[in-house]
Computed example of a mutant assay.
Amino acid sequence: MSNILIIGAGGVSQVATVKCAMNADVFTKITLASRTKSKCDAIAKFIKDRLGVQIDTAQIDADDTDAVVNLIKKTGAQLLLNVALPYQDLTLMDACSRAGI
C-alpha cells in the first residue's frame, strides 16, 4: 500500500521503524536512511531478526535537499517520516515538496 522513507537512525527512529514494520500490510516498503548507514543497518537487522521484515537502508545527508529528492525518487517513497534533527525539518519539507510527496 504505502512506501515510506524514514530519515534518522536514533532511538526514536528505531521505535518508529519497528512500528511501521509491525504494520507491513500498510507499509509495504520501508527504507531507513541516515548520515551513518551502519546505524540504519543495525536497526534493519534488529527488525529482520525479530519480525522477519526486510528494511532497505541508505546513507543520506538530510541537509542536502537535492540528495533527499534523489533518494525519494530512487526509493519510490510516497511518504517521508522525519525523525532526524529538528533543524532539518525545512530542508526535508522542501525535498518532499519538490519530489511531490
Rank of each mutant, 00 (worst) to 15 (best):
D25T: 14
D25M: 15
T57A: 13
S38F: 11
D61G: 01
I4K: 03
K45L: 12
K48R: 13
R35L: 08
A77P: 06
M22G: 12
L51D: 07
A24V: 06
A44T: 06
A62R: 00
T57D: 07
A42V: 15
T75V: 12
R50G: 09
A44R: 08
L80Q: 01
S34T: 02
T75D: 11
I101S: 07
Q14H: 10
R98A: 09
F46C: 10
V83T: 09
A9F: 02
A77K: 01
L81S: 13
Y87K: 15
K74I: 00
V68K: 09
I4E: 02
I47T: 07
A33Q: 00
Q59P: 04
D89Q: 10
G52S: 14
I7Q: 02
C20K: 04
R50D: 11
Q88T: 10
S2F: 15
V83L: 14
I72S: 06
G52W: 10
G76R: 09
G10V: 11
A95N: 08
K48N: 08
I47Y: 08
S97A: 12
A24H: 01
L81V: 14
T17I: 06
S97D: 11
L85K: 11
S97R: 11
L81P: 04
K39G: 05
R98P: 02
L92N: 07
A84W: 02
M22P: 01
T75L: 13
P86C: 06
L51W: 13
Q59L: 05
D49V: 13
K39A: 14
K48A: 12
